[in-house]
Design a protein around this nucleic acid. Structure first.
Lengths: 345, 345
DNA sequence: CTGAAAGCGCTTACAG
DNA sequence: CTGAAAGCGCTTACAG
């Protein structure tokens, strides 16, 4: 079981009766013009026979390139940013890059050590993938290597970042309800300790205020289904009862749905419900399917990797910029025109 | 922005006025007895000043050890196996290992290429982390390197694997219902195309049969909340109506809960509901909190890494074995004694 | 106590 | 057309 020594270029050379350099030449497609056809065949055959594969570690040392990207991420209230990670992996992988994955629970020291380890390995680039939109103010520790931030932003604008337009998305969610005549709109949220929650709340407030409506009643708790359930019950027993609700988080929306049903009410007849997206693929899977403003995780991931690889390959100074991606709404069956089809006509 | 050349041991040596070897000695704690105190201080100071960090690529080439583990995983119906990946990362990281992450959507070719890439990088070990229990019959491609499988098993028993006792867990779930007097038990499942589903179904069947009960009615569809909803409605309209239900998947359980409420019924009064665990942290978060048989993801992850590291460090022949971890039940509020507290007394 | 050499596994100029 | 040498950045025997 202990690894038998893997064969090296020298082994291939010995078997083929040529020098190490010739092996390298042939295997890298530079045989023609340098070696006779017969020797080329011999090298190929020897390599095949020995199952020779170049040692990527040695290659990296020589080429000063590891073809490896460091991915710094962590679990938020909704777990890992799965769709982004998947998108990053697919895009980078298609370009021939491997990924070293650093799971860094919050804490600057932890981050710092993670990045140091990545730099020690001489990764070609670093990509920070945040599960929820936050400030990432420690970019100075990211070191002298191409880098990009997904779903987080450097307040000092020292590094390029790709972020979702949480504000616009949330405003869009509210607008959908406003357009359907709703004026009594409740808002379920978790504590506004992140940029994500802050922007989402602001977006809703802004849309309502723009429409001349008064500020919504905001209910706040943890990001759990239980919390959503409790908050929604509370909201639905307020006077006047809201006719619509924006949930800042998927799990809160699920809790709200359960609460509505528990109270003998129905979505959307008695309450229009729209949720923002945390990447859990949850709300769009419910019954009824909930209207959701989606975070474009996949698109952000692909674009980020493309930018990062470009920076790596040009190794020129890069313009630092912040790209904001729109969050489109998908309507589902959970919003209704106010008064239309109401159970109490 | 383009990386300024990172300083090397030679730079430190030059600055400190010693040789490269001395730098290595001092920085690796072998200064005493080899260098004068003054020179040692000079080396340390020079290293600090140049922010010197040894190049891990060069280190790997020399030591024939990369301190890197390859993690092969993919997304199942419930996404990535988040808890297992987190556990693997924490355990390996604490031991000083980095992780190269390979996201391999099904397909042997894809797997094969992923493993080849890992082997080219000379990872010290490979760990396969499956999102749902499956056979992993392609261990021959795993190559001559220490390896271990989590949540999947090699039918040829050529490699050690850590698996949850899905059969026992499912039987336990059924037993909880049986113990409470239930005899009309419905079973919601997805298609038994994986070992996971197969074992879970068998476990339930076995427990019922052991208790002298007839086989449960099995309802099958995709792993979506919608499917769970539809199946549960169907099940609840059967005659005789089941008094209890085992859901093979978390999302099916959520769908079932929504269906129960939609029909104006209640859990657990009208239906006792228990779910098996997919690692989504979903069912335990619902209202009411669903009884769940939990998969010990964290424990499996920690144990696997410990075994793998041991194999790496001893590099001796390892006994191939299959370790099965029990799946404990957490009761929640969704199961009730039959007839007790029934809404139709 | 200290420095020069060898070698990990490659590739790329460079002599012959 | 072919092989020997240099060098990527380290560490560890080995001479002095």
């Amino acid at each position: 079981m202990s690894a038998p020594r893997r064969s090296t270029a020298q082994d291939v050379a010995d078997l083929a009766g040529v020098s190490r350099s010739s092996v390298s030449l042939v295997l890298n497609g530079r045989g023609d013009g340098n070696l006779t056809a017969a020797k080329q065949v011999a090298v190929l055959e020897a390599a095949r026979q020995l199952k020779y594969r170049p040692n990527a570690v040695a290659l990296s040392l020589r080429s000063q390139r590891t073809w490896t990207l460091g991915v710094v991420t962590w679990r938020g209230a909704s777990g890992f940013p799965q769709e982004m990670l998947h998108g990053v992996w697919e895009t980078a992988s298609a370009a021939g890059y491997l990924m070293i994955f650093m799971d860094t629970p919050d804490g600057h020291d932890r981050d710092h050590r993670a990045v140091t380890a990545l730099l020690d390995r001489r990764v070609d680039g670093i990509i920070v993938v945040a599960p929820e939109l936050v400030d990432y103010p420690i970019t100075e520790i990211l070191g002298p290597v191409p880098k990009i931030l997904i779903n987080c932003a450097d307040p000092q604008h020292a590094v390029t970042s790709i972020v979702p337009d949480e504000f616009g998305g949330a405003a869009g969610a509210a607008q959908i309800l406003i357009d359907r005549g709703h004026t009594k709109i409740a808002l379920l949220s978790d504590a506004p300790s992140t940029t994500q929650v802050h922007d989402r709340l602001s977006g809703v407030h802004h849309a309502l205020s723009d429409a001349g409506l008064s500020a919504p009643r905001v209910y706040t708790a943890d990001v759990t289904v239980r919390a959503g359930y409790d908050l929604a019950r509370q909201a639905l027993q307020a006077d006047p009862r809201p006719t619509a609700m924006v949930c800042i988080r998927e799990r809160l929306a699920l809790g709200a749905l359960l609460a509505v049903q528990d109270l003998g009410l129905e979505v959307p007849t008695d309450l229009s419900l729209i949720s923002l997206d945390d990447g859990e693929r949850l709300t769009s899977d419910l019954v009824p399917e909930l209207a959701t403003v989606q975070r474009p995780d996949r698109a952000m991931a692909e674009h980020s990797v493309a930018l990062l690889l470009h920076e790596i390959n040009t190794s020129g100074d890069q313009d630092v910029r912040q790209l904001s991606f729109a969050c489109p709404a998908s309507l589902g069956a959970s919003v209704a025109e106010l008064g239309v089809g109401s159970s109490n006509p």
